[in-house]
Simulated scan of single mutants.
Amino acid sequence: MMKRSHFQERVAAVGFALALVGLWQLLATLQWISPLFFPSPGRTLGALWQQAADGRLWEPLLATVERMVWGWLLASVLGVLLGALIAGSLLARRLLDPLLEFMRPLPASAIIPIAILAFGLSSTMSLAVIAFGSIWPVLLASVQGFGAVDERLREVSAVMRMSAWSRFMKIDLPSAMPGILAGARVGLAVALILAVVTEMQASLTGIGQNILLAQRSFKTPDLYAGVVLLGVIGFITSTVIQTAENHVLRWRGSAT
Rank of each mutant, 00 (worst) to 15 (best):
S166C: 08
S76F: 15
V143T: 04
F168H: 01
L106N: 03
V196I: 15
A176M: 12
E151W: 10
P178F: 12
I111G: 00
V138C: 03
V80E: 01
R93M: 11
V159W: 01
A92W: 13
A118N: 04
L85A: 14
L181M: 13
I130C: 01
G179E: 13
V143M: 09
L81V: 15
V138L: 02
G133L: 05
S134G: 04
G79Y: 10
A108W: 02
M169S: 11
P178V: 10
A87F: 12
S109M: 13
P98R: 12
R104G: 06
A191F: 11
S126L: 09
L194T: 07
V196W: 01
L91N: 06
M169L: 15
V138F: 07
L90A: 14
A84I: 01
M177N: 07
S157T: 15
E151V: 12
R167W: 03
I111T: 01
E151Y: 04
L139F: 03
M160D: 10
L100D: 02
L85H: 01
V186G: 01
A164I: 05
A182V: 13
I86R: 00
V186C: 08
A182Y: 01
D150F: 06
I112G: 00
G79C: 06
S76T: 15
P178N: 12
G83L: 08
G187I: 11
M169K: 07
M160R: 08
M169P: 00
V156D: 07
S109L: 15
A128Q: 03
L81F: 14
R94S: 10
A75F: 10
A75H: 05
L90F: 08
G145R: 05
P178M: 11
W136Y: 09
A191G: 03
G133Q: 02
M162D: 05
M162T: 08
V138A: 02
A87W: 08
M103W: 08
I111C: 02
A191T: 10
S163Y: 08
Q144S: 15
G120K: 12
L81A: 11
L181T: 09
G133R: 01
V186H: 00
I171Y: 05
V197A: 10
A115Q: 06
L181K: 01
F132E: 01
I180T: 10
A110W: 08
L78G: 05
V77A: 03
G83Q: 07
S123C: 03
E101G: 00
V80W: 08
S123R: 13
V80M: 09
G145Q: 08
V129P: 03
A108C: 04
G145H: 03
A195K: 01
L96P: 03
A195E: 07
E155N: 08
I135L: 15
F168T: 09
P137Y: 12
M169H: 04
R185A: 14
L90Q: 14
R104K: 09
L100S: 03
V80S: 02
A182Q: 07
G147S: 09
T124Q: 13
L106P: 02
L82V: 09
L127E: 09
E101S: 10
G79S: 02
I116N: 06
L188D: 08
A182C: 05
S175Q: 10
S166A: 14
D150V: 07
A115K: 04
I135W: 11
I180S: 02
V196E: 09
A164L: 11
D97L: 07
P137G: 14
L121G: 01
